[in-house]
Design a protein around this nucleic acid. Structure first.
Lengths: 175, 175
DNA sequence: GGCTCCATGTAAGGAGTTACATGATTCA
DNA sequence: TGAATCATGTAACTCCTTACATGGAGCC
């Protein structure tokens, strides 16, 4: 199971019956970047999950509009538990981060542009932090505490980044 | 330019002339996870960079062994600067993190397994932190300060994760 | 009647993954 | 002489990306 498949399965499990469109919206509105959540990724992933027997599509109406409402099967719930529990050894380390990658080669920029780089990284981080803090808790989610825990993690992540950017400014040669 | 292409270009720029094999080793030994650094990724990426005119392969010997030593061209250096500076708005936010993703659905696990999950996440994080701290500064790198800054970022990232895991334990329903 | 959402697809393309293959060289 | 390392490739596959297409429902 891919990360995307696992995450989709989790969304369907945690928010009861919902359409593929609604699943996609969850990803689009997530304050975590990296999920492109394009139709070309979500719908095929759902098809695969249906193929595995982890998701069932009940021909139901969500409101007035037509659309297949998705539900997790018993095997799907088992698969979700397995996916969560089977942590690879590599998970838990520092994930790839485009800013950190670029800092390795910051010496290629003239000093003025180095500071400009760090400034724009800081701006982005502050914007991201505001988005995370302003993110409303989805009332459809089964376990609000889990959602809160995840959002807290994202916030702490970005806060750590802000502190780090300050440190990098200090490490810059010449002040 | 892909993240991988940019990173490869940066490695070649920062460590002078070196073989594709050596580039690959840098990625494999990086304490940052997420770079698979398989031959099937690195060599085609190098080929592409040569195609763009960013990298030149000088038919030279590295030591006694044969192998094409890679160097960055003038256009390559320009491209590297551009790649570093052109930060997308999305960069700087919280990157996708497999642990955080899973925490969203931690409610699917029975309470005992929730704690086991957090324990193994913590173990992985501590191991990663030790690897980062024990990582030797590559003497071939042009700018040791940049390397140190990057490693510091990885360490701060994992430290923030450890604090977060503690918080999540507290958020768990029932203690 | 037109604009915005909801809702689902699909086609083309690229890039990375896994896995294997091949040789030369160093070293014990 | 055999194992480990250096060094480069390639073939098959999968998944994700970008981009486009379609149609119905709600609303002002």
């Amino acid at each position: 199971m891919t990360e995307l498949e696992g995450a989709v399965l989790g969304v369907v499990w945690s928010r009861g019956p919902l359409t593929g469109y609604a699943v996609r919206q969850r990803f689009q509105r997530s304050p975590t970047v990296g999920w492109s959540a394009s139709e070309g990724a979500i719908y095929p992933a759902i098809e695969r999950l249906i193929g595995y027997g982890f998701i069932r599509s009940v021909e139901e109406m969500t409101g007035r509009r037509s659309g297949r409402a998705l539900t997790v099967t018993a095997e799907g719930e088992e698969a979700l538990r397995f996916w969560i529990s089977s942590l690879a050894d590599s998970m838990g380390g520092a994930p790839v981060d485009p800013i950190r990658t670029r800092v390795n080669y910051l010496g290629a920029l003239p000093p003025v542009e180095r500071r400009a780089f760090l400034d724009s990284a800081e701006r982005n981080a502050r914007a991201a932090l505001a988005a995370i803090r302003g993110h409303d808790i989805d009332p459809k989610h089964k376990d609000p505490w889990a959602l809160k825990a995840s959002l807290l993690g994202a916030a702490m992540d970005v806060e750590a980044r802000l502190k780090w950017i300050d440190e990098v400014r200090r490490l810059l040669p010449g002040g």
